[in-house]
Design a protein around this nucleic acid. Structure first.
Lengths: 280, 280
DNA sequence: TCCTTAATAGTCATCCTGACTATAAAGACC
DNA sequence: GGTCTTTATAGTCAGGATGACTATTAAGGA
């Protein structure tokens, strides 16, 4: 089975005399001859990691799961959880594994209605001062508030309000900002917001998710009308179950619908307007 | 860089003993002790490549830039252009370099109003039968129709209509499908369509881009109204320049506006409706 | 019982959109 | 030159969606 000589042997092929590259076939300043394909002479091993931006909503604020770094560089600083890819796992598998290790939830998504999504890959040379590390970043959403179980070390991992999550190690500030932006955008045209909610939720709770992630306040009747008018966004829970305990009129319970995309989308109130005007 | 491994740092040879659980701290099945940070014992070198899905519109059809593989595996099959990351370049730099090598356009984006965007990263073990390769995929848009210059080999690289671009090597069919979907989606809420057009274009040409990428036909007056009503999408070119030569009334020329995002978006006609209905 | 709080039900004017019709200005054809 | 064809551009019109509000209902707390 594969035995895939994981490391080294820069001969692994992806290559060959390369299409018609006669003499010194190399991409020169302007005159290169070597066109496509993978050039073995360019093969270079990198370390590949995954970094996770795990979000949840706690006390009406958006929180991120962070870990405290125990060694240099950036010792003592907060960082996104993550780790190296194992030899035979995909980046997504690695992300699920790390997520399970940090939060204690099962790696198989059967347990929690979590959402895990690849964000993008960060590959700047020098993003890790020690070595060349290419990191595939993932954004994850979890509903409840499972206290992180950072290896039993209470100080090691924790939920940090997004507003206070600055000064992270490496380029994690940027990754976190990208993840926040991506999630905010996805709330507009997908039913993703339900991933922040428990299996059964009220429309008020769902609205709270939007308001928390977007940092705005929405009109309740309008939000309600929009959500209920969007096919497949939410479906009423069993019978007339209602949320008790709270103040005010009990709210009807809903669960996530089957639709992945919202048509039409639920747009943010005032997106950053382009500073250009047009002749009316 | 004919000398392969100039970047000695990670020392490709010292790959961890594969699944390498060197006794010490490693994320065990359930009981792990090491939480975050990069665990050196888990370090495993991978080959990192970029793959490019370069699109253009030719003869009212969407085309992709493909290269013919000259060696096994998948010898003779079409594949997306791409290659290994060089030791000191980021994935984006590598993507620009490869794009320049394949199309002959300058790596610096000053020349062509091209668009280059990271798509996502593909990391399934086994996606390359020879070795473990993690590939960062990029989607690129180019306006004109520069004939690819695949190292002078006419058969080596070429524009292939998307409809005929099946059976690609590796997992490139999937990458290509993902890229197409991403571009189609971005046309909805960004001014990206102008990247397919020359510096000055007519609204008819812009509409052609939408129709080609989405595979639909749009109502011309409505499209016009929508585009002109979106601030910053397009701006009228100089004076009353018009496109001559064609049949019919000469069309006014426009150029790309400053707005990156369209508000409100220009939605596709009938997106795949979720197969769920709701009580009206 | 009264007050507060939150959910839910409507109203209304405005904007956007899709479907169409009409007009203008060029080249093609005879 | 006089059509016809083609494409650009200007409007019209009805329906749907949205934002801003107001009103009512149903709980818990003082």
């Amino acid at each position: 089975m594969s035995a895939a000589r994981p490391a080294g042997t820069p001969d692994p092929g992806r290559a060959a005399p390369d299409t018609g590259a006669p003499g010194g076939a190399r991409p020169g300043p302007a005159g290169h001859t070597r066109p496509a394909g993978y050039d073995p002479s360019a093969f270079e091993p990198f370390a590949v990691t995954v970094d996770l931006a795990v979000f949840t909503v706690r006390e009406e604020r958006l929180h991120v799961l962070l870990v405290r770094r125990g060694e240099d560089p950036y010792r003592g600083r907060w960082a996104l959880p993550g780790g190296f890819l194992h030899p035979r796992e995909s980046a997504e598998q690695a992300a699920r594994r790390e997520l399970a290790e940090e939060t204690g939830m099962e790696p198989d998504s059967t347990t929690a209605p979590l959402h895990l999504e690849q964000l993008r890959t960060y590959s700047d040379p020098g993003r890790d001062p020690r070595m060349r590390v290419v990191s595939v970043a993932y954004a994850a959403l979890v509903p409840g508030l499972p206290e992180p179980r950072g290896g039993g070390d209470a100080e090691h991992a924790g939920w940090v309000a997004l507003a206070e999550a600055g000064g992270l190690a490496f380029d994690h500030d940027r990754i976190l900002a990208d993840a926040h932006e991506r999630i905010g955008a996805k709330l507009e045209y997908t039913g993703l917001a339900t991933a922040f909610c428990p299996p059964e939720f009220t429309l008020g709770e769902l609205q709270q998710v939007y308001e928390t992630v977007w940092g705005v306040t929405l009109d309740r009747p309008n939000f309600r009308r929009k959500v209920l008018a969007t096919p497949g966004f939410v479906a009423p829970a069993k019978d007339g179950t209602r949320r008790t305990g709270g103040r005010g009129k009990p709210a009807a319970l809903y669960r996530a619908g089957a639709a992945a995309a919202l048509h039409p989308p639920l747009l943010r109130p005032d997106p950053p307007q382009p500073p250009e005007g047009r002749t009316p």
